[in-house]
C-alpha cells in the first residue's frame, strides 16, 4: 500500500493524527498520547493495515517533551509507518504500553524507561533493564549530568 493510501485510511480513524511534513523515507504520523493505544490496536488488527512487526521503539528527549517513536512494518503488505507520541510532563511522564500488542515492546519499553524515565502504563514488569536498581537519573535525557563518567566535548 502506498503512503498516500495509508494516509487516507489513517485520517478516517479520527484520532487527531498529525502527518509530518518533513521528508522521510517512511510516512510519519504524530498521535496525541491519549489515542496511542487505540491507534496501535487498530494498526495491528485492521486487516488492510496489519502492522504486525514493531521493528524499532525509540525513546527520545526533544528538549521540552519526552517522546517515543514507533517504527512499524506489515509482514503481509510490506508497508511501513512511523508513529510518534510525546508527553510534556518531564517529572512523571506516563504513556500507554503497547506490550499487549507487540511482545517485543516488553524489553524495548524497559530500555526506554531505563534511559528516559518514561513510565509505561500497563507494562507487566517495568524496571531498570541495563542500569543498576539504585541508579539515579535517566542518562539519555539531554539534561542528564554526570561529571565523572561522561566525557563532554
Amino acid at each position: 500500500m502506498s503512503d498516500q493510501e495509508l494516509q487516507d485510511i489513517l485520517t478516517e480513524f479520527d484520532l487527531g493524527l498529525v502527518f509530518s511534513e518533513e521528508t522521510s523515507q517512511y510516512l510519519t504520523v504524530r498521535v496525541p498520547k491519549e489515542g496511542l493505544h487505540l491507534l496501535m490496536n487498530k494498526l495491528k488488527s485492521d486487516i488492510n493495515l496489519s502492522f504486525d512487526y514493531l521493528f524499532c521503539l525509540t525513546g527520545i528527549d526533544w528538549g521540552e517533551e519526552l517522546g517515543v517513536i514507533y517504527h512499524l512494518e506489515s509482514t503481509t503488505h510490506r508497508h511501513s509507518l512511523v508513529v510518534k507520541v510525546q508527553t510534556a510532563d518531564r517529572e512523571n511522564p506516563i504513556l500507554d504500553s503497547v506490550e499487549d500488542i507487540w511482545l517485543t515492546a516488553n524489553f524495548h519499553e524497559m530500555e526506554v524507561f531505563d534511559f528516559f524515565g518514561i513510565k509505561f502504563k500497563n507494562h507487566p514488569n517495568l524496571k531498570r533493564l541495563f542500569l543498576p536498581k539504585d541508579w539515579t537519573g535517566y542518562p539519555l535525557r539531554k539534561d542528564y549530568v554526570d561529571t565523572i563518567n561522561m566525557v563532554v566535548k
Binding site: F55, C56, T58, H71, L103, T104, F107
Partner: peptide, 12 residues
C-alpha cells in the same frame, strides 16, 4: 538508536 537484533531475539 541502534535496534540490535540480539536484543529482540533474547526477548523471545
Amino acid at each position: 538508536k541502534f535496534r540490535s537484533p540480539g536484543f529482540s531475539n533474547l526477548s523471545a
